[in-house]
């Protein structure tokens, strides 16, 4: 019993318990409930997808896990400790990129290590490893404005990984990419995740993307947000969009999700 307990605690890297989040309505007054009684347990090294309709508060959940925002009620813990502000142990890949336009690809990827005071040679080596991993070899000295949207998102991914966080939060990272690039990046993100086992929490509103990349999908209810359903995705990788099992799961999840206009 005791043993069982310990093992379980180790397995969950992040836990959200009865988390509420309200925003003040500036014009009308009163509050807007975005998240209501949200409970999620994130397992170590899993690829967890939070899937739900647009505007349902997924980004708010990620921002709270990242520490950019505080829950109104409830607690979020990482490895048993309450999350208190952003921390390098939780990296984030942002929907709108948020890469530093005045730094080169190399400058962006090594930024976290530079802030930590890692010496130039070490951090260059490490950054180079991640630049190669995401497939940006040869673009080290390019500025973000000189590369494509897909490449910029790779910079964001390499930057998050290079800081060696335990958990990487991805907020609809491929939302702004064209369909072809998006398919490519889905394969890439799985390849990188398999090469560098870390916990990933991936937010998307795209059902195929969710089933394609996830170990586990948590379907999020529309506002106020909480868990509506949960699916273990045991399909072997690499997956196929037209595999019958894939389509069956896709249909099943589609029937569960709240559809909004």
């Amino acid at each position: 019993m005791q043993m069982e307990q310990t093992r379980k605690i180790e397995k969950n890297i992040i836990t959200l318990e009865h988390v509420d989040k309200e925003f003040e309505k500036v014009k009308e007054g009163g509050v807007f409930e975005v998240v209501k009684d949200l409970n999620i347990k994130v397992r170590e090294n899993e690829f967890l997808v939070l899937f739900g309709p647009g505007q349902c508060g997924k980004t708010t959940i990620l921002n709270m896990i990242a520490g950019f925002e505080e829950p109104t009620a409830g607690t979020i813990r990482m490895k048993g400790e309450k999350i208190n502000g952003p921390d390098p142990s939780r990296g984030m890949v942002f929907q709108n990129l948020a890469i530093f336009p005045w730094l080169t690809v190399m400058g962006n990827v090594e930024y976290g290590l530079r802030m930590k005071g890692v010496d130039k040679k070490t951090r260059r080596e490490k950054a180079q490893y991640y630049i190669d991993l995401v497939g940006l070899k040869g673009f080290e000295n390019h500025y973000p404005i000189q590369i494509s949207g897909g490449m910029k998102q790779r910079v964001g991914i390499a930057r998050a990984y290079c800081n060696e966080p335990d958990v990487i939060l991805m907020d609809e990272p491929f939302g702004a990419l064209d369909a072809q690039t998006r398919y490519l990046m889905q394969d890439e993100i799985i390849r990188i995740w398999e090469a560098e086992k870390r916990t990933v929490i991936f937010v998307t509103n795209n059902i195929e993307e969710a089933v394609y990349v996830a170990d586990r999908i948590i379907v999020i209810r529309n506002c106020p947000t909480n868990v509506k359903a949960e699916y273990e995705i045991n399909l072997p990788r690499p997956r196929s969009y037209i595999d019958p099992d894939f389509l069956k799961l896709r249909r099943e999840i589609n029937n569960v999700v709240d559809h909004t206009l």
Binding site: P86, P88, R90, G91, G112, M115, N163
Partner: peptide, 12 residues
Amino acid sequence: TIVNAARMLGCN
């Protein structure tokens, strides 16, 4: 979001 990105990467 640039500010958040920097904080997330550990800048003081």
